[in-house]
Nucleic acid binder design. Structure first.
Lengths: 226, 226
DNA sequence: AATTTGCATTTTGCATGCAAAACGGTATTT
DNA sequence: AAATACCGTTTTGCATGCAAAATGCAAATT
């Protein structure tokens, strides 16, 4: 039975196919679509108020991004990352971030630095206040900013792809207070390396920082699974 | 007018949606779909003998892979890489390959080494015979093998994504004889570093090799554009 | 003559329909 | 009773239809 407010024709505004893609992404990050769970097209169609055609297009994109698995004739399944997957992804992100750091150190302007400093001290404030969620967001912004400063758009895209797949895991991995303090310290070293334009040093710090973040996520994630 | 041999129903075998994706990929690599050209859905439907639904799903995937641009309400356009795009992509591939090399050097077995040696000397033979196309293929296989040996599936996927976008450019970039000889030499050093399990050295060699390959592609590509 | 307007044609975005494949549960067989 | 065969239901894959958006080109306006 079609809803009364829906008709058989193309509506100029509202849920386009792209909205469905980001909508499903959000559902995955928020955990409404649990990893490993099977997702019938019907359910998602109703959730977004679109028919199966744009929804299936969205699923294809999400599958090629690695967020869901598409089993022929058996529908979509939310990808469930194993501990090894996470380690692999962080390893690749380490190489990417190291490159981003080297490039950023060469190109960074005083304005970029000022912006990063502002983000950093805002983040540090959230740390001292114990505000995990705002800290998390600022942290992401800082790393995004470093990639943006690298000036390499391809690098940014590849990073975003991996980062998006890991977002859910990082989101639910509760950092320990001790590791949290350590991470803030590492961020101070990151800032210092950028200020002195020491690309090689920055690359090393970032790679090391990511390696430790990986350990945090892995350990925080696996035992409890939510 | 529908063809006589096509009906309104689901056919169990033959052109599935996935075939269309790789089919279009091939058309792009072979240059049948020129970079920058607009591609109406209609012609692709006829080329592959499918209706618009699976074709559009394929286009979405190719767009998210970065092979085509999808302009809302205005169809698909084959991505035309600029010189800067190519440089960016090689820079990222350099970081990836460097990581792959370091990991591979740690994990490589005698059997892997034997396989790589076989590929290498086969490739060297094609070089001495001046057989560009077979050389090109073996070269790709060697790099693929190094990535596979790294044991990091994510790394392989990210590499394949970038490599696929660059394939067309590398395919038509005619290497100079001088640079060709140099590349073969670099490959010997790659093999030597793997044999001595020197990951750091291998990483550097690979990054340098990619940097030079990038220059080759850029210069061979831009002046003539075909 | 150059630019703009109008309209027929083409192309895109989406909903729907239909058949094949998978699923679920009961009945049948061993 | 356990395993298997059967059959209705659900879900998937694809073709098609229709309306909105874009496109192309001739006629009208300045």
């Amino acid at each position: 039975m079609p809803d009364a407010d829906r008709d058989n024709t193309h509506r100029p505004e509202r849920p386009r196919y792209g909205d469905v893609v980001s909508g499903i992404r959000d559902l995955i990050i928020e955990g409404e679509l649990a990893p490993g769970s099977r997702v019938p097209e019907r359910v998602l169609c109703e959730k977004f108020g679109v028919s199966r055609t744009p929804l299936r297009e969205a699923l294809k994109v999400l599958a090629s991004e690695g967020l869901i698995d598409l089993l022929p004739n058996r529908g979509a399944r939310i990808v469930d990352l194993t501990e090894d997957d996470i380690e692999e992804m962080f390893q690749v992100m380490g190489a990417l971030e190291s490159l981003a750091g080297e490039l950023a150190a060469r190109k960074i302007t005083e304005e970029d630095l000022a912006e990063l400093r502002a983000l950093h001290y805002q983040m540090a404030l959230h740390f001292t206040r114990g505000e995990r969620m705002p800290y998390f967001r600022l942290n992401q912004q800082i790393h995004e900013k470093i990639f943006a400063t690298s000036g390499n758009a391809t690098l940014v895209k590849v990073y975003r792809g991996l980062s998006g797949r890991l977002r859910r895991a990082r989101y639910i991995a509760n950092i320990s207070r001790a590791r949290w303090a350590e991470a803030v310290e590492e961020h101070e070293r990151i800032l210092a390396a950028l200020e002195s334009r020491d690309g090689a040093m920055l690359g090393r710090i970032l790679k090391d920082h990511l390696r430790k973040t990986c350990e945090t996520v892995r350990h925080a994630l696996m035992p409890v699974e939510e």
